[in-house]
Design a protein around this nucleic acid. Structure first.
Length: 132
RNA sequence: GCCGCAGGCCGCCUUAUCGCUGCGCUAACGCGCGGAGGAAAGUCCGGACACCAUAGGGCAGCAUAGCGGGUAACGCCCGUCAUUCCGUGAAAGCGGGAGAGGACAAGUGCAACAGAAAGGAUGUACAGGUAAUGCUGUAGUGAAAUCAGGUAAACUCUAUGCGGUGAAAUGCCAUGUAUACCGGCAACUAAGAACUGCCCGUUCAAUGCCGGGGGGUAGGCAGAUAGACCCCUGCAGUAAUGCAGGGGCCAGAUAAAUGAUAAGGGUCCCGCAAGGGAUACAGAAUCCGGCUUACAGGCCUGCUUUUUAU
């Protein structure tokens, strides 16, 4: 295991899960987004509270995968890559944020490919955030 | 042993690392123990459970249809008979399979070929008969020719059953903001209402603050995970199934956990070998009973045929 992996917390606890229907509606109506095909990240700033500074959900469209097993599988992979790369977000956001990570292709990418794309996506997000 | 058919069952395992979720323990860090299916699927039937509706009766609609049994219930399951198919046989019979099967003596519709004619039918020949007439018989075609013809997985009729919605049901708690209403305090006149036509005054209203408070949004809790439950044994029954005794606890999430990765091992396929490949269908969403559909590979039981050995 590389050195850095021991230092960071690769967790995805309940408090970090995006559950509020209203927040999700807000994100899709007023949020901004970045894409790194085939992934897409939608985000919106939240008011600062005592809760977790970050709220994250994942999404795989029924349009791309008809069977529930496939959707579950790719949602798990998205959670996995979020877990391993969430420090990129936590170290760079100025306040509280909500995110939705979306998988937008019918192709069955491997975990390794998705992981690479996720890192690129997060870096792209950070650049966009700094430009504002 | 092989092939085929029928029925039933199972449907990957281990370790490590990083994670998720429920419960228990702990002051805490954490630790321990559980954690998808036979179809979880299609949402096609039947229930349980809720709420709404409901005097009684009828119409419409939908479903079912030999007989007997099982069940909480069913359109499901079991048994059995008519009928029918296949094999065998001279036949009787024997073995195996199918088996939605009430009524055509209410009405309507439909019917290949053959045939004069197939449904308000009746020609020809011969024979018989009458006041008269296909009135009667035979020949001829056909499965069927006035025989109460056939056909209802044809309309239809008969009998029986069925109220609707569906866990986003339903019940409860409730922060913030605004607020019906109630109480207290403060303040005060420019306007309002009443006593009263006017002035003063009083009361109300109005304003601000504080407190109470109903409904109720976000959200939360219950519903919701111990049950027509599972396993074993015995008894009753041809069976479906029932009864008795003993043992067991087996997901409970809610934008939704039950995973990801790596290594090793099973099993099967290809190959002389090294080795390579495959490991299905598929993801709980209130819960049960069925039906239907999907499924790599493997196992078991029974029967038929054939081969070899005894």
């Amino acid at each position: 295991m590389p050195q850095y992996m021991e230092q960071k917390k690769y967790t995805y606890p309940k408090e970090e899960k995006l559950k509020s229907r209203n927040t999700i509606d807000l994100m899709f109506s007023e949020g901004r987004s970045v894409s790194k095909y085939p992934l897409r990240l939608v985000y919106v700033p939240l008011p600062v509270t005592n809760e977790s500074p970050i709220k994250v959900g994942v999404s795989v469209s029924k349009k791309h995968f008809k069977k529930a097993v496939d959707r579950n599988y790719f949602k798990r992979l998205l959670r996995e890559t979020y877990r391993h790369n969430k420090h990129l977000l936590l170290e760079n956001i100025p306040g509280n944020y909500a995110f939705m990570l979306m998988y937008q292709t019918k192709d069955r990418l491997s975990l390794e490919e998705i992981n690479t794309k996720t890192i690129q996506l997060f870096e792209k997000f950070i650049i966009q955030l700094k430009q504002q």
